[in-house]
């Protein structure tokens, strides 16, 4: 299949030879990764293989001990905390398994948060947040607090928040991990559909193949090493 854009030239976000050690355990031990604009890539592997660490390094949340992460040609470890935070506000979006919503704020305020942090006024921000909630079929929970909504609704709110600032890359770490099959399927459908509509790339960390099946391509992490299977089997 077409492997022309797998190289660093066509990649939106790429990592080379990442190493990260927590205490005595090596979470990443030479991991490579590329993702093109608009692509959905599943990062798979058993528990403790280092998938989440790879995602954290890619998003600039955790600095790798060795190796480099480039986003649009810029090396992330060369950026200040403020600059990396600004990347998280504008260019990146996050959907985690749980715990990422601020319990004190209502759902619509949670979704509006990234816009408010970049200085958008309250009315505009919450207007756009409401549109996204509508699109993710959770307009009815807009005024509720995260503690008052179901797990599936909460994940949809989180997706809305990840997408509201129209990011270039969405980082999703086990986004359906806490959901039942039906809710998980729906959340994945909404997430991938929204990502394709807005042209956002998705780094999708999961250990479930059914969830990974929503991707265009998959990368397997095993013992901290990322093996790009796409290189062998070709991209569908």
């Amino acid at each position: 299949m077409t492997e022309t854009t797998t190289g660093a030239t066509g990649a939106l976000l790429s990592a080379t030879a990442l190493r990260k050690t927590y205490g005595a355990t090596a979470a990443l031990d030479g991991a490579d990764f590329q993702i093109r604009a608009g692509e959905i890539v599943a990062v798979m592997g058993p528990s403790g293989s280092g998938k989440s660490t790879l995602l954290h390094c890619l998003a600039g949340i955790v600095p790798p001990d060795e190796g480099q992460v480039h986003y649009q040609g810029r090396e992330l470890s060369g950026l200040s905390d403020a600059e990396r935070s600004a990347l998280r506000r504008g260019a990146f979006g996050f959907v985690f398994q749980f715990g990422q919503l601020v319990p004190e704020l209502s759902c619509v305020e949670n979704v509006a948060l990234p816009l408010r942090l970049t200085g958008v006024d309250r009315k505009t921000a919450e207007g756009r947040a409401a549109e996204w909630l509508e699109r993710l079929e959770v307009a009815d929970v807009a005024r509720k607090r995260p503690g008052q909504v179901s797990g599936g609704q909460g994940q949809r709110v989180a997706i809305a928040r990840a997408l509201v600032a129209t990011p270039r890359v969405i980082f999703a770490d086990e986004p359906t991990g806490a959901l039942d099959s039906l809710n998980g399927e729906r959340v994945m459908e909404l997430l991938t559909a929204a990502a394709r509509d807005t042209g956002a790339a998705v780094v999708l960390v999961t250990h479930e193949t059914r969830v990974a099946a929503y991707s265009d391509r998959d990368v397997v992490v095993r013992d901290g090493k990322a093996r790009d299977v796409a290189g062998m089997a070709g991209v569908a």
């Binding site: 099946a213 397997v220 299977v229 569908a236």
Partner: peptide, 14 residues
């Protein structure tokens, strides 16, 4: 690995 890639390919299609 090859088999898995093939499985996944089919799963993506489905």
């Amino acid at each position: 690995d090859t088999q898995r890639a093939e499985h996944l390919r089919l799963m993506r299609e489905l």
